[in-house]
Design a protein around this nucleic acid. Structure first.
Lengths: 188, 188
DNA sequence: CGCTCGATGTCATTTAGTGCCATCACGTTA
DNA sequence: TAACGTGATGGCACTAAATGACATCGAGCG
């Protein structure tokens, strides 16, 4: 299997299969590499560590988010700009990807180690979003607060989207969550 | 040093010293145990893993938070109850503990591994806070959103408190951050 | 004194992760 | 066509985290 194309993709697919079959902790990196027809050493050339095989590509989400925030109308208040970013993210969560997203989410939910990694990825997204807000002239701590709040909205919307058997549109879920947050903040 | 009292405290002190001297990654568990006059095996009896030596005791913060939320006036809206919880937390961050908190925060900031652990501890606190809100009759997703927003406020307030050479009161910082969040949510 | 029990030590083992160098397949060039 | 260079992969050795099984120590108690 050496020299077959798409070694990284094969490793990702093998990892997903094995995590679903035996669980994350019961799967060794050597197992994954073997199923992909490669070796442990090669696995660590593509992924910084065992968890990363489930998270690679998250930079593209961050880029999409930041781009949408940057392009939002200059007059848009911080949370409105964040909403634009969230909707850009939503474009990645289509009906076709729902099955994969749900499987991946189930694996992550089964392991604290993986939850940690997910949290730091979301924190990185929040940091990038806060930087984009600052570039729009938003000061601190407003930028950090708005960015973190937006990521919270994203987490809530995403978990609802994943849990739903009949996935509704992601946009509607984010709008609902954001509205709820606004109501909470408006309460005396 | 075997049978000397407070093995756990000695391990924590040794770890903090070594992390400050050499950095977290350059310190092995064997190093810590040796300085504490114990062995690696004993370290892992007190702490689930190497990172946990910096985080043990966080359950007490969670308890204080939850207790304050539970005891808040029944009519208090969700974010007001969260504010009560945050102020209860603030009681733990006194001027005497400022030095320790700053050193600990600097160590955590130096290592992604430790940041991951901190994030999951905060997530656990948010989950407990959300459960406390639900017990007060708050529905979902409002409970999760309010709890996560409160933790965001806490993070902002805490980082400002730590960074400050002349530590102001923690209460004032949380109130400011919460007010900023309310303003953001109120913007069109 | 001898016993029991909790805390600690010792040893072996698995696995994640990394550095170093060898090897392979492929394209380029002479 | 043969030599060469290059990027991807394998092989091997090594460190350190983490865990299980079992031995040992020290203190209190009858």
């Amino acid at each position: 299997m050496r020299w077959l194309p798409d070694a990284m993709g094969r490793l990702q697919a093998a990892a997903l299969e094995l995590f679903l079959e035996r669980g994350y902790e019961a799967t060794t990196v050597a197992d994954i590499a073997e199923r992909a027809g490669l070796t442990k050493r090669t696995f660590f050339r593509y992924f910084a560590d065992k968890r990363e095989v489930l998270f690679i590509g998250s930079e593209r989400l961050v880029e999409a988010f930041v781009a949408a925030v940057t392009q939002a109308p200059a007059e848009a208040p911080p949370l409105a700009a964040m909403e634009a970013g969230l909707h850009a993210l939503g474009d990645s969560f289509t009906a076709e990807r729902h099955r994969f997203a749900a499987e991946r989410a189930a694996i992550i939910a089964s392991s604290p180690e993986l939850q940690e990694r997910e949290l730091i990825k979301l924190a990185a997204m929040a940091a990038a979003a806060a930087a984009a807000l600052r570039a729009r002239g938003v000061g601190e701590p407003a930028a950090t607060l708005a960015a973190d709040a937006a990521i919270t909205v994203f987490r809530v919307a995403f978990s609802r989207w994943v849990a739903d058997d009949r996935p509704e549109g992601f946009r509607a879920l984010t709008r609902e969550s954001l509205d709820t947050l606004r109501m909470l903040a408006a309460a005396p």
